[in-house]
Design a protein around this nucleic acid. Sequence first.
RNA 1: GGAGAGAUGGCAGAGUGGUCGAUCGCGGCGGUCUUGAAAACCGUUGACUGUUAAAGGUCCGGGGGUUCGAAUCCCUCUCUCUCCGCCA
Length: 425
Amino acid sequence: MLQVSVLRNDPQWAKERLILKGFSQPELVDTIISLDDQRKKTQNEFDHNQSQVNLASKQIGGLMAKGQTQEAEALKATVAQLKTTLDPLKESMQQIEKQLHDTLVLLPNLPGALVPAGKSAEDNEVVREGGLRKELPANAQPHWDLINQYRLVDFETGAKITGRGFPLYIGKGAKLQRSLVQYFLDYNTAAGYTEYLPPFMVNEASAFATGQLPDKEGQMYFMEADQFYLIPTAEVPVTNIYRDTIVKEEELPIKMTAYSPCFRREAGSFGKDVRGLNRVHQFEKVEIIQIVAPSLSYQVLDEMVAHVEKLIQSLELPYRILRLCGGDMGFASALTYDFEVFSAAQERWLEVSSVSNFESFQTNRMKCRYKDAQGKMQFTHSLNGSSLALPRILACLLENHQTEAGIEIPKVLQPYFGQEIITLP
RNA sequence: GGAGAGAUGGCAGAGUGGUCGAUCGCGGCGGUCUUGAAAACCGUUGACUGUUAAAGGUCCGGGGGUUCGAAUCCCUCUCUCUCCGCCA
């Protein structure tokens, strides 16, 4: 959620930034400022009357104590009179505040200075490429064929148990998933991130705080009976650890990592690029999250990008890093870098990580603040990234490391997986 | 699911209708003393809103009610703890 003060400060600039993000109603900025004016005006009037009521009530107390009941009764009558003006004022104040909040919440975060203009994925900027594309055997295959031959994942049975998009991992496939999760968590904790295992369902307040609500309402699974949402990413429960808290400056930066399954309805996005593990309703992911002082957030963003980059390098995969353009960024983000790994057999890039700085967009919704050196209350900044998302990494590992002899396991994973190569069953 | 107890400022914990936004303690900050530190002593220390700055207003888990006046009384919801039941 944006701060009204930011919009007031330079409405024209704010509108331009919103347009860069592809937001279709920049005029809401003016609506918000005018609502805020109304709010101030109404509140002022209300406060004035309330103050008179408070004063009179105190006087009544004094008069009663002295036994001057007649004077007290007279004052009571004036208070009663004043109070009739209070209720309608309060009502309209609440109404204005709600309207203001409901409108404010519709605005996406303003894109940061580095964000390139553009409407879609084609306009993203390639920051750099890395890793080696291995020479593949002549009969190289896409992962959806490999997982069948090697008996790693069974989509049909997953569909029978639940529905399409719920893969069932089997044998070495399941173990490879588990090895990756463990490796990623160890890698993250070695870099100073504290590991959490969070709840996989969240309440409405949590889903709102990180920006999933109201923006992505239809994308989350919802448990009607208990009013819980299945998490689309560990970002939601983990970031919410710090909802409604005031942290000490010396506690910053707060570095957290968590594994979780992720549930996404992917409503409307099926039909294309959905084969195999490319897009599923349930997948595993290890997330990294930081809460930091505002002045450091972009430096931390670079650190997180470097952190994820090394992790992908260690898996010996060819990758590239993109800086997302305004139109392709998420609702809550101010700057996002996507990591894509080259899927050799599909001959296309697959997104495996997304690292973002949310600045104070989430922390304003969450009310996560700290006192700076001057003793002033400020919103912290929050950042997060996948480190890493699993099914696509699995797909890329299979495709990029397939050889005549079998699927080679990267060195760093071998201690976790327990063998160097997966051979045909 | 049933019964009981509870929810107050960073923590701990008083306060049961009228200068209570809230005693005291711990912690934090500032100071005295000290070469420095500790101890001791003194002072200070919630958030939001509003204003150039004030004043003023709001907040004692959430919502509603009673009253001239509510942290305090009533209703309701949520959560926590203890016991019972069920259960991986």
